[in-house]
Amino acid sequence: MKKITVLHYINQFFAQIGGEEQADHPVEFFEGEVKGPGLAFMQLFGDEAEIVGTIVCGDSYFNERHDETLDAIIEFVDRIHPDLVIAGPAFNAGRYGVACGAVAAGVQERLGIPALTGMYVENPGVDLYKDKVLIVSTKNSAAGMRAAVKLMAPLALKLGRGDAIGASCEEGYISQGVRVNFFEKQRGSKRAVDMLLAKLSGKPFTTEYPMPDFDRVDPQPAVKDVSKATIALVTSGGIVPKGNPDFIESSSASHFGEYDITGVDELTSEGYETAHGGYDPTYANQDADRVLPVDVLRQMEREGVIGKLHNKFYTTVGNGTAVASAKAFGAEIGKRLVGDGVDAVILTST
């Protein structure tokens, strides 16, 4: 099998050129050479991969001439065209971390070549690049080199081979904010018992899902005069024209529907039904007004209680639909309603 080819990016310190006094060392390319931590990687790669060149750059040099230096590095990487780029590890060195992140992310984005770096979790490079590239979590100083390479080398091989990458806790990289499924060693109930025993005895434990910051929306001020207002109906209860013409999914909806109800006085079982898979559809299918009250609003319209019912309704299925999708639907529906001069909305759920 062909060996995976790797280019390695390191700074002046790890290339043994010098410390801070050499931080202005310009970028240099060493084709065919392995330097510093590259030797440790090579040991663990065995026959599977080899470093085919090393890029060295002073930390200040890179950060002060960020764009042009990155361009030069990308050009070199493109010429060699390795299977993979490894940058660092940078531990807690700030400028080095930012450079490693920039190189790894740049190579991945601009050349489509997978890249990997390693940093201490508080390195400023982590916040800048963790959602763009895989950053292996390392100790805060070069004393952790052996441990860092031990985590990075197998992950590098996986990237180089194009294998599926597991969850952050399995592979040792810093979470990218993307939830990834994997199989644990113990079943969930056993993990729960162990976590509870740790929590009860004041020992450290790690939650498997850190609570998100919850997005709370303040209600709008009340409508001053409802008798002059145009009211729209929007639902997550899945009411659609019979036959579900836009194929809104019964769960985990990928889109919403917009339907004209000009001249529709009530929603009959011949004309409307629900696409929702999260509740017994019997009663909604018998009379969809139970979920989307067109009949009541038409009556209020006639009686002058409201100004008028907007001639379109918007509908989707809330069941199992990701919050990000729901937010996107909400933003788009809101835009259309505002564009149509709607004053207020009745949102119905199920």
């Binding site: 969850a167 399995e170 990834v180 499924n181 644990e184 079943r187 969930g188 109930s189 729960a192």
Partner: peptide, 9 residues
């Protein structure tokens, strides 16, 4: 109820 080993991070 934690019947399985599947998890996520």
């Amino acid at each position: 109820t934690g019947f399985n080993k599947l998890s996520a991070r």
